[in-house]
Amino acid sequence: MNSVKEGYYYLSTHEWVKQESDTTFLVGISDFAQHALGDIVYVALPEVNDNVKQGERFCDVESVKAVSDVYSPVSGTITEINTSLEDSPELLNQDPYGVWIMKVEGSLDTSGLLDSAAYTLHLENEH
């Protein structure tokens, strides 16, 4: 339950970012987030070429009885969105750290983020 993946950085609002190359980043939601939401039924995806900023909302995720804003852990421009979530939003439940929501071209400022140890601690403290 509520696993935390090493090598990823997190926001305290339960999003993760993983560096793919120097300037490319993948963004998703944590195991805790998908558990808290329950069965995810819809992801309102952002659009390619939209600019995102660290700490700002970029999409929302719906379960039957809840909706949750998703915040970006990274600043930059969206180069790709995971369109398989349009038809299979449950992928976020099944593999939260393998399934990303968007790919961002930009730069990572880790000072505002939690590493896996800090995020683990955050989960223990908060919940």
Binding site: V41, Y42, E62, S63, V64, K65, A66, V67
Partner: peptide
């Protein structure tokens, strides 16, 4: 259905 659109959730 699609209740997450609605005021009691959103």
């Amino acid at each position: 259905t699609l209740q997450a659109r609605e005021q009691h959730i959103r």
